[in-house]
Amino acid sequence: DLPPEQWSHTTVRNALKDLLKDMNQSSLAKECPLSQSMISSIVNSTYYANVSAAKCQEFGRWYKHFKKTK
């Protein structure tokens, strides 16, 4: 379990794929700090720029909290 400071584009993509087993992209976009188009691009590997470090950390913090509450 990585601390949010160490999250990267790959970590975010893997976490998104895991979350999308249980929910669809639009529900996920309402919950998490990423937009639906960004989620779609990341999981389909069409998001060519890497997600910014700040966004990765924000998502990492959100993901840890989300997993605790589920």
Rank of each mutant, 00 (worst) to 15 (best):
Leu19Arg: 02
Gly60Lys: 08
Met23Tyr: 14
Asp18Ile: 11
Ala29Glu: 10
Gln36Thr: 10
Ala53Asn: 04
Gln25Asp: 11
Trp7Lys: 00
Ser52Trp: 02
Lys64Pro: 02
Ser26Ala: 14
Leu20Gly: 03
Asn50Trp: 06
Glu58Asp: 04
Ser40Ala: 13
Met38Asn: 07
Glu58Thr: 03
Gln57Gly: 05
Ala49Cys: 14
Gln36Arg: 09
Thr69Pro: 06
Ser37Thr: 14
Ala15Gln: 09
Val12Gly: 03
Leu16Thr: 01
Tyr63Trp: 09
Pro4Gly: 10
Phe59Glu: 00
Arg13Val: 08
Ala29Ile: 08
Cys32Arg: 00
Cys32Gln: 01
Gly60Ala: 12
Tyr48Cys: 14
Tyr47Met: 06
Leu20Asn: 03
Lys70Arg: 15
Val43Phe: 13
Gln6Leu: 12
Met23Ser: 07
Leu16Gly: 01
Lys17Met: 14
Arg61Leu: 13
Tyr63Met: 05
Ala49Thr: 10
Ser45Phe: 03
Lys67Glu: 09
Leu19Glu: 03
Asp1Thr: 02
Glu31Tyr: 06
Lys68Met: 12
Thr11Glu: 15
Asn14Tyr: 07
Ser40Met: 09
Trp7Ala: 02
Met23Trp: 07
Glu31Lys: 15
Lys68Asn: 13
Ser37His: 15
Tyr47Thr: 10
Lys21Ala: 06
Asn14Ile: 08
Glu58Ser: 05
Thr69Asn: 04
Glu31Phe: 04
Asn24Thr: 11
Gln6Ile: 12
Cys56Tyr: 08
Val12Leu: 12
Cys56Pro: 00
Met38Tyr: 07
Gln6Glu: 07
Ser40Ile: 09
Ser8Pro: 01
Lys68Glu: 12
Gln36Ile: 08
Asn14Pro: 01
Tyr63Leu: 04
Arg13Thr: 09
Ser35Leu: 00
Thr69Gly: 05
Ala53Arg: 09
Phe59Trp: 00
Ile39Glu: 02
Thr11Trp: 07
Arg13Asp: 00
Arg61Met: 13
Asn50Glu: 13
Glu5Arg: 04
Leu16Tyr: 04
Cys56Thr: 04
Lys30Gly: 10
Ser40Gly: 08
Asn44Asp: 05
Ala53Val: 06
Lys21Gln: 13
His9Ile: 15
Gln25His: 07
Ser8Leu: 04
Thr11Ile: 08
Pro4Asn: 14
Met23Ile: 04
Ser35Pro: 05
Ser52Met: 01
Gln25Ser: 14
Thr69Trp: 05
Ser37Asp: 15
Ala54Gly: 07
Ser40Glu: 11
Trp7Phe: 04
Lys70Asn: 06
Asp18Trp: 06
His65Val: 11
Met23Arg: 07
Ala53Leu: 15
Ala15Lys: 06
Thr46Ile: 07
Leu20Asp: 02
Ile42Phe: 07
Asn14Gly: 11
Thr11Met: 12
Pro33Asp: 02
Ser37Trp: 09
Phe66Ile: 05
Leu20Cys: 06
Thr46Trp: 06
Met38Glu: 15
Ser37Gln: 14
Tyr47Phe: 14
Ala29Val: 10
Thr11His: 14
Glu31Asp: 09
Ala29Tyr: 06
Glu58Pro: 01
Trp7Leu: 02
Gln57Trp: 07
Ser8Lys: 05
Ser8Asn: 15
Arg61Asn: 04
Val43Thr: 07
Gln25Tyr: 09
Pro4Asp: 08
Val43Leu: 15
Ile39Ala: 00
Thr11Asn: 08
Pro33Ala: 01
Leu28Phe: 09
His9Asp: 05
Asp22Phe: 08
Asn44Glu: 08
Lys55Val: 13
Leu19Asn: 02
Asn44Ala: 07
Tyr47Trp: 07
Lys55Gly: 04
Lys64Ile: 15
Gln57Tyr: 08
Gln36Ser: 13
Pro3Cys: 11
Gln25Trp: 12
Val43Trp: 04
Ser8Glu: 05
Met38Gln: 15
Gln36Lys: 10
Leu28Met: 06
Ser8Ala: 07
Ser8Gly: 11
Tyr48Ser: 13
Asn50Ser: 10
Lys64Tyr: 08
Ser27Pro: 02
Asp1Gln: 15
Ser8Met: 03
